[in-house]
Design a protein around this nucleic acid. Structure first.
Lengths: 130, 130
DNA sequence: CGCTATAGTACGTTTTTTCGTACTAAGTAA
DNA sequence: TTACTTAGTACGAAAAAACGTACTATAGCG
């Protein structure tokens, strides 16, 4: 319906103009950042493995978050046609590209959290390391 | 009720352990990041001025966002006892401290948005500059 | 046949976030 | 006297995000 007009209009357009909101649209919410952190080390992880590590995420949220991240070009989904099914996720090149920025943000946060909840590595759950 | 026990427990504690979630707790949501961006240049802005620049934020959201940011130690609120009332907001030292990390994130986003919605400065509304 | 395992989907509910409209106090200007 | 201004608050409604429970297909194992 909107073929000739690539860019979204109205409020949606406005939200996309700001790079920080652009980023929040991709990584905001409860689970996306933790998922990216799990995948940061580079080892491909399968659905069930991510779910176990996250602990209390529901199927709905995990499936949806992964789908969104895939649609944003952040994660890659590789499906093996086996039974029982096996699907592995990893960061794309684009996904890896944001890690340095995340490390910087995390660095600020850790500094800011000093004392309160200091942890040697940035996070034991989220394996982003400096 | 919880005087001896400083740290939050249970799920709240878990959420605060991750630096990235810690940051999302402070800056997540629709308006906080834009507000920080407006204040980034350093000029103190008054309530009505921020509201005008943001355009379509409601009083409720603006007041609440500012209150949250103040509680987090990110913005400073200075009230002049005049009539009509005048209140000015600016970033605290801590608030300024996160700007380099935000610039890095925004840099990634701008690179990623290339073509789609490129803008010379990072954002015309959010005045974070490199 | 009945049970297990994986990677999800369907459906409905609860919780959280955001929004809209109206209202306030105090002094100044018309 | 009435209107205007600023920096909000109160209240309820709407929208968005997250949740819980149940369910599916397929093959292998006992």
């Amino acid at each position: 319906m909107n073929a000739a007009n690539q860019k979204p209009t109205g409020q949606a357009a406005e939200e996309l103009q700001c790079p920080l909101r652009y980023m929040l649209n991709m990584f905001g919410g409860k689970w996306k950042l933790p998922i990216v952190c799990m995948l940061a080390p580079g080892t491909p992880l399968r659905y069930s493995s991510i779910k176990r590590k996250l602990g209390n995420i529901t199927n709905v949220m995990l499936a949806q978050s992964l789908k969104d991240l895939e649609a944003s070009g952040i994660v890659n989904r590789k499906q093996y046609n086996e039974v029982p099914p096996r699907v592995e996720y990893c960061l794309t090149k684009k996904g890896k590209g944001i890690l340095p920025a995340l490390v910087k943000v995390a660095g600020w946060a850790v500094e800011d959290m000093q004392g309160e909840a200091a942890c040697g590595s940035l996070c034991d759950k989220c394996q982003v390391t400096r």
